Computed example of a mutant assay.
Amino acid sequence: MSFKALIVNKDEAGAVTAGVETLDESRLPEGDVTVAVEYSTLNYKDGLCLGAGGGLVRTYPHVPGIDFAGTVTASDDARYKPGDKVVLTGWRVGEVWWGGYAQMARVKADWLVPLPQGLSARDAMAVGTAGFTAMLAVMALEDHGVTPQKGPVLVTGAAGGVGSVATAILAHLGYEVAAVTGRPEAAEYLAGLGASRIVAREDIAETVKRPLESENWAGCVDAVGGAMLARVLGQMKYGGSVAAVGLAGGAGLPATVIPFLLRGVNLLGIDSVMRPYEDRVRAWARIATDLPMDKLSDMIRPATLAELPELGAAILKGAVRGRVVVDVNA
């Protein structure tokens, strides 16, 4: 059986090329479960893997795509049988292992999660790693006592994939959401997702000498890191929590320990790649109930496999808003 896949190659000079090819099923890697992929999506990591790799890709030729959803066609594991709907995010699939930019994938059973009732494969990829990470961040804030009654929640990088879904989830749960963006044209989009306030990036991007400022935020989902995260820590309410999900603004943290010592602020690291199975099931169940699917339509940009090299370059430049959903069969 043959299938289409987006193949990335690197020549001896280090030049990277990507294009759609037809492969035989025998080319699939080893694994317990074979899946007929229906949809994938585009994340920042995918942009790296479609280009020079950023050190993520080990061997070429390679099939990127860190997320996919589809239907099991063959399984050597009792947990899955042909016809089961499944979703995969993380586990370095699409980086070290062949991923979802193909009509077929073969992976370890431990990496899969049953697709929750009420979610289609397309819905799941409108969510993808970005939405899964956003839900993990919201759950972490809840687990540390953040409630709508305690005050507004800040979302940085709000027009990106994680920020968009976090904004929609938090608003749906009754939080007052303050959305940070450097793109004024995104204000209407963010308001449509439920943001009640738009914060200009320049108003919060720079560090200040004062380790503490006015107490503004009960919680924060931060996709930026760097100087912005440092600034936000000094603006948190007493006992507030920040869920750190990204580093679009840099990996450094030019902060002091004062917010932690004097206000009891919590800085919560959110990892979605190696997350245990039980957490994944819990998060996907919450996505099915607490993410308003009608809001997803405002975030989605459909794409085909052939369009991904260009879109991968765009996402690395911050030029992709919301979620790209890839129909691998188009």
Score class of each variant (00 low, 15 high):
Gly239Val: 01
Arg275Cys: 14
Arg275Lys: 14
Tyr44Phe: 15
Ala109Arg: 13
Gly269Lys: 03
Glu202Asp: 15
Arg197Met: 08
Thr41Tyr: 00
Gly118Thr: 07
Ala285Asn: 15
Leu136Phe: 02
Cys49Tyr: 02
Gly312Lys: 08
Thr71His: 00
Leu23His: 07
Met228Gln: 13
Ser120Gln: 11
Arg323Pro: 09
Gly53Arg: 10
Ala18Arg: 00
Gly182Ile: 02
Glu185Cys: 06
Gly118Ala: 11
Lys45Pro: 04
Val35Leu: 10
Gly94Asn: 08
Arg197Pro: 12
His62Trp: 03
Gly83Val: 00
Arg231Leu: 07
Gly161Arg: 02
Val93Thr: 14
Glu213His: 14
Ala13Ser: 15
Thr89Gly: 10
Gly192Asn: 08
Glu213Tyr: 05
Thr289Asp: 13
Gly90His: 09
Gly151Glu: 10
Val72Ser: 00
Arg58Leu: 12
Thr41Gly: 04
Val199Ser: 09
Gly219Thr: 09
Gln149Ile: 02
Leu253Ala: 08
Val16Arg: 12
Gly225Val: 06
Pro64Thr: 01
Ala124Met: 05
Asp279Ala: 14
Lys108Ala: 15
Gly90Ala: 11
Ala13Leu: 13
Asp46Tyr: 00
Asn329Val: 03
Ile66Ser: 13
Ala283Val: 14
Gly65Lys: 01
Pro211Phe: 10
Ile7Met: 12
Gly90Asn: 08
Pro152Gln: 05
Cys220Asn: 10
Asn329Gly: 11
Ala303His: 07
Trp91Ala: 12
Asn43Lys: 06
Cys49Trp: 01
Met236Gly: 02
Gly182Leu: 01
Ala227Pro: 05
Val72Cys: 01
Gly51Pro: 05
Val63Asn: 06
Val8Pro: 00
Asp76Ala: 15
Leu119Ile: 13
Ala313Tyr: 11
Thr73Ser: 04
Ala244Gln: 10
Ala187Ile: 01
Ala178Trp: 14
Thr156Ile: 01
Trp97Met: 12
Met299Ala: 02
Gln235Ala: 09
Gly157His: 01
Leu267Met: 11
Val57Pro: 03
